[in-house]
Each structure stands twice: as structure tokens, then as C-alpha cells.
Amino acid sequence: MRSLQDALYNWLSIQVVADSRPDDLAAAETAQLFQDILKEEHDVVVKEIMRDEVMYTIHFLKKGAEQQYQFPVDLIDVMIDQMKEEPEKFKNYNEKTDQD
């Protein structure tokens, strides 16, 4: 991942999906992948995510120093909103799903 901002954006976008679909193994694995990228490539540990009507705010530690980034709700919630509007297009892949 090139920038911390991109890594945080990608992680938060899929984390929102994983949080809203706790039985979706693919979403959870992808969120974990991006969380690993944050830790390994950027030395970042996310401490808290806050959401209001307009923004998501991510509070995190980078090399021990507290920092934060903000992203517009509309930008982050695009995928989960689309999944809610058209659930038939977004099959939930969990460990119990027959994938033959």
C-alpha cells in the first residue's frame, strides 16, 4: 500500500462491511488483511472508530504517537449501502457455504 491514508481507507471500507455482516468470512478475512497491512507497513494500531452523520474518525497509534484521520461517511458506506440495496448480488461467503 502506498500511503497510510489509502491503507486506512481500504481497511475502514471493508471493516464496515465485516462489522455489519459478522458471519461473512470473506469480509472478515479481508478486513484482517488490511489491518495487517496497517500494522506491518505503517506501524499503525487502530484504537477507535467514531462515526457521526458526516464523518468517520479513526483514532490510532503510529509508532506510539496518537493520530487521527477522517473520511466522509458517504465515501466509506458506499459498499455496505449497495449490499443492503441489492443483497441478491452480494452472496455471503462463510465457512458453512457450499462453494462447489
Rank of each mutant, 00 (worst) to 15 (best):
M1G: 13
M1L: 06
M1Y: 09
R2Y: 10
S3D: 07
L4A: 09
Q5T: 13
A7N: 12
L12K: 06
Q15W: 08
Q15K: 12
V16F: 02
V16N: 03
V17G: 04
A18S: 06
A18Y: 00
A18W: 01
D19L: 02
R21C: 00
R21V: 00
P22Q: 04
P22F: 05
P22A: 05
P22G: 09
A26C: 01
E29H: 10
T30H: 09
T30Y: 07
A31H: 02
L33N: 06
L33F: 04
F34C: 02
F34L: 02
Q35W: 01
L38D: 02
L38E: 00
K39A: 08
E40P: 03
V44W: 06
V45H: 03
V46F: 08
V46I: 15
V46W: 11
K47H: 14
K47C: 11
M50C: 06
M50G: 09
D52L: 08
D52I: 04
V54S: 12
M55A: 11
Y56Q: 02
Y56C: 01
Y56E: 02
T57M: 10
I58V: 13
H59F: 04
L61Q: 15
L61M: 14
L61A: 14
L61I: 08
L61D: 15
K62S: 14
K62F: 03
K63H: 11
E66F: 11
Q68V: 07
Q70V: 06
P72V: 05
V73D: 06
D74T: 03
L75F: 08
I76A: 02
D77C: 01
D77E: 10
D77S: 07
M79Q: 14
Q82C: 06
M83E: 12
K84Y: 07
E85I: 02
E86V: 11
P87Y: 01
E88M: 10
K89G: 10
K89L: 09
K89S: 10
K89Q: 12
N92K: 10
N92M: 06
N92L: 13
Y93E: 06
E95I: 15
T97L: 13
T97I: 04
D98S: 15
D98N: 15
D98F: 07
Q99E: 14
Q99R: 15
Q99P: 00
D100A: 13
